[in-house]
Amino acid sequence: MKISLGLTTSMPVRSSIKYAKLAEKNGYHRIWVGEDILSREIFSYLSVICLNTEDIKIGCGVTSPYVRTIPIIASGFAGIQELSCNRFTLGIGVGGIPEIKKMTGKTPTQVADVIWETVFLLNKIFKGEKVSYDGVKACVTDFKLNLSKDFVPPKIYLGVRGPRLMALAGEIADGVIFSGAKDYLKHSLRILDSSAKESRRNPKDITRVLWNGFLIEKDREDRTGRRDRRIAKIMVATIVSSLPGHAIDYLDKDSKDRELILKIKKEFLKDHKKASAIVTDDLIDQFCISGSVDEITDAIREYGKLGFDEFVIGPPYGRDPGKVIESFGGRGDYTTGGS
């Protein structure tokens, strides 16, 4: 199991540079940057991270094809790949639906088709091919990027959750960025494996990255511990609020979790604080990897046994991000599953 660092574009860039350098120094495998659609811009953000690191792999996890066109996605990330000397991996996903709606005025539709054509076209463009295509959302005519002779096409991962998209990932993705409840993750891994086999691919060739809620907590009974718990609740409420229907449908109709998740989703639209307040400890355990460094280390091992190859730390990280990043660096004792 490899350990990577998670950043998002909602974090101040200077903080991210500091954490990225620290992760590189501490032997992390990769730095993932998630695009918060309404926050900072991903091409400039990733460029800055590339320029402030030397060898560590860099990933975008994820960007949405609903907010940019194929030529812009291709030209932006080709630029990042060149700038990083081929250290880059591109993660594609639908993205946050309320944010997309706010930016574009439209709700994403035909997601499986759009994700498929995005990966299909990007793979061709990154190989230097001239492409013409008129699809569901993508349209290009004799489009070709001039790439340098040293350019290596970046791997394309999918950040997806629903069964249909997970099956699509089994067919076409070089890797998958997983997130969601622990039980649902096991189910997702089965879908991925089965789809890969149906597509005559070796499931082990698909890198499985786990990027779930993460928080180092101190003793829950003292004041700072209680504050950590509040942060964990906010985080879980945020994750739950964006859960797709099928991830909830997976739970038993009579399950208490299902009822609670639906309540949090509903409440989150009206009042984030109230939604966070009703998050339970059980739900935190399902959606968030929290606890002491040792407890989290054990949890990472468990996830490794389930079949994950890479584990993403944060954000948030805990009260002292630098210390947390150092704590998980160069341990080399996260057994199994990695490539």
């Binding site: 811009e41 091409f43 400039s44 990733l46 460029s47 800055v48 590339c50 320029l51 030529p71 812009i72 030209s75 932006g76 080709a78 630029g79 990042i80 060149e82 700038l83 489009f143 070709k144 990027l145 001039n146 790439l147």
Partner: peptide, 16 residues
Amino acid sequence: TTSFVHPFPVIANICH
């Protein structure tokens, strides 16, 4: 230019 890489990585590189 449409067939070149996007300006943002280039601009960041210059500034850096």
